[in-house]
Design a protein around this nucleic acid. Sequence first.
DNA 1: ACTTAACCGAGACGGTACGTCGAGTCTTTCT
DNA 2: AGAAAGACTCGACGTACCGTCTCGGTTAAGT
Lengths: 203, 203, 203, 203
Amino acid sequence: MEVGRLPPDPLRRNPHSYAAILDATVDLLANVGYNRLTIERVASQAGVGKATVYRWWPSKARLVLEAVAERYEFEPMVQSGDLRTEVRELVRHAIEFMVKTPFGHALPQLAADLADDPDARSLLIKWLGPSRAAHLAVLYGAAGRADLPHDVDADLVLDVIAGTVLYRNMLGHEIDERLVDQLTSLIVDRDLPRSKATDGRLV
Amino acid sequence: MEVGRLPPDPLRRNPHSYAAILDATVDLLANVGYNRLTIERVASQAGVGKATVYRWWPSKARLVLEAVAERYEFEPMVQSGDLRTEVRELVRHAIEFMVKTPFGHALPQLAADLADDPDARSLLIKWLGPSRAAHLAVLYGAAGRADLPHDVDADLVLDVIAGTVLYRNMLGHEIDERLVDQLTSLIVDRDLPRSKATDGRLV
Amino acid sequence: MEVGRLPPDPLRRNPHSYAAILDATVDLLANVGYNRLTIERVASQAGVGKATVYRWWPSKARLVLEAVAERYEFEPMVQSGDLRTEVRELVRHAIEFMVKTPFGHALPQLAADLADDPDARSLLIKWLGPSRAAHLAVLYGAAGRADLPHDVDADLVLDVIAGTVLYRNMLGHEIDERLVDQLTSLIVDRDLPRSKATDGRLV
Amino acid sequence: MEVGRLPPDPLRRNPHSYAAILDATVDLLANVGYNRLTIERVASQAGVGKATVYRWWPSKARLVLEAVAERYEFEPMVQSGDLRTEVRELVRHAIEFMVKTPFGHALPQLAADLADDPDARSLLIKWLGPSRAAHLAVLYGAAGRADLPHDVDADLVLDVIAGTVLYRNMLGHEIDERLVDQLTSLIVDRDLPRSKATDGRLV
DNA sequence: ACTTAACCGAGACGGTACGTCGAGTCTTTCT
DNA sequence: AGAAAGACTCGACGTACCGTCTCGGTTAAGT
């Protein structure tokens, strides 16, 4: 009564091949990027038959997702007890991830490819969940200390940070220390971002 | 003073072909999406030789970019004089664009493809610029009325709005009226977003 | 005194699997033909592991050969004592086999695959031998009765019959009653084949 | 109002590619045989994209057929006026073709692959037709001289010769000078083939 | 009766080839 | 000269089988 040819018994999976495939995927992601990463190259670089990749992953997006989920280590988030320091860390983490790692660069295309893959959500959670949870914990901790409103929408706060960084990165804008200051100030001081000078930007 | 095969004399361009190609591009973008839009399909649907497309556009990203720049009409932004109303409009516009139009959906992939195309920036400006300028004008107008700090970083405010919407849309999260309220409140009231209930979300 | 992995102890062979494999082979031969018969399909249809097939047969050609050797029943050849009747029977048998059975259709491809398999000869003999012997017996019987020359090359006579039928069948030419008459007449009456009308054929 | 994607306009075919593909096909046929000849190898050896092969030929069988049709030169058949000499030549030609050339060896498999390709007949005629016609002419010439019955079925005579040779070759039997004698004698003297000694053969 | 070796099903594995699609370039033909 | 048409090389797609292999689970023989 099965449908849809889901991955077969993972117990019978060859761990060497599995590791080699994820390694190759991460390596290619870093070196050639998501667009130029192909199943064929992954298989060949992993010393593995194409069919072995297709046996376990239905698409490039799923493969990349699992590879980063297994391989990418988010930096640990420390709760210092000082809100400003903590929020600065949150912003820095977002920048670190979105701007500095191949994983962050792949995120938009990954998300696009996964858009019509309903089961992918759970994998995204598996990947981003722990880091997200740690970040939420920081904000809820601050709320507990009354450094933030007790009913703060921590999810949205994080989305504002991540989204702003992602958006600027996507459009190729510079992402510098000032952005960290401004976003931190927005959250901590509820101060709207100020311009140093009048440097209006188009786009 | 030559650079690698730039479009030839645009005066000699066949306007029928040009229009048909842009039409086909927009149509395919809406109907099959950016990923499944191919030059081949564009050419065939436009009743045009592939070479004609390649003669005028160096890549699919550039073609799509020009197509939306020529074809997509941003809603006009009205300055009502009431800050809250205006900011709500800004957020609504962002949502309308990112969530409801094929152009918004294509944006992340477009940006990824354009990442290593330095000349693309001017086209992006050509496309997004006017709308962006109108949005900036609203904020600077508010600053002039002292409804916002005189030195507000209007660029960042817009990026926060657009980025948050984009990020949520990219990850498939729901985007509803409450988000409009929360973002508006963040800008206008400098109030951090609140949760209705404790509805923590993973990812 | 070892040779490369010959079939293991046949006594331990599972008779159920053995029968199921041969059944599946014959069935697929009849239903999809030699070319589309694959070891994988045989194994799956027989409810057997691929390795079981490979354990006992080194190649598809050998498998098919054994399957038909075990399963195909040649019609018995009766010696009527009347040469003409007997030769007609020989021709009919050849036609029956080459044209009407899946085994006959497989013969050319089988032979091609077996070409560089020196041990296959004995299996071919095992299969075709009894029928061949019966056919030879008929001719030698006729020679004994002096209906044919005492030193007739019965082998060649049979090859002429089989070859002619095979050749016409291979090229898709019609094989009808007249061919039976003509070949019979060639052998019995030593009369060259005559045309009903001038119906020259190309190829 | 077209169906079935037949080869496109042959006038636009690149003659270099065309020649290279046929060359590679003939070469591989001679060096590795029909079974191990693959479209992929043909394309690669011809320095051509696979799609180019598939654009012009729907199958390996058709490709091989056209290659031999274009490349294989049948020996010319001379009409000496002496029936025995002529028939010996016919037999020799059949042997030469079936036994000595890669084309003859490929014939059975080619025929099998072409079996369910109704349009292939015309190509087979294109290939074998001229030679066949020359052979028929010899027999009809002999009939005209009354060396053979005026209404001899020349087609069948040729099929007997070709078929016998093909059959023996297929089964790996030796094909020697004696076979030439015997078949010649069968046609010319209407003498049944005789054995040198009693050398009955199985299969 | 108990070990032990072989067979067995199942199916993953590294490969080769399939036949298709699209990218981006080039040539031919028409206007 | 620009444009349609589409052939070209190339690379990747996702699938089918090849023949080998490893995994547990019988099954039968030999102690």
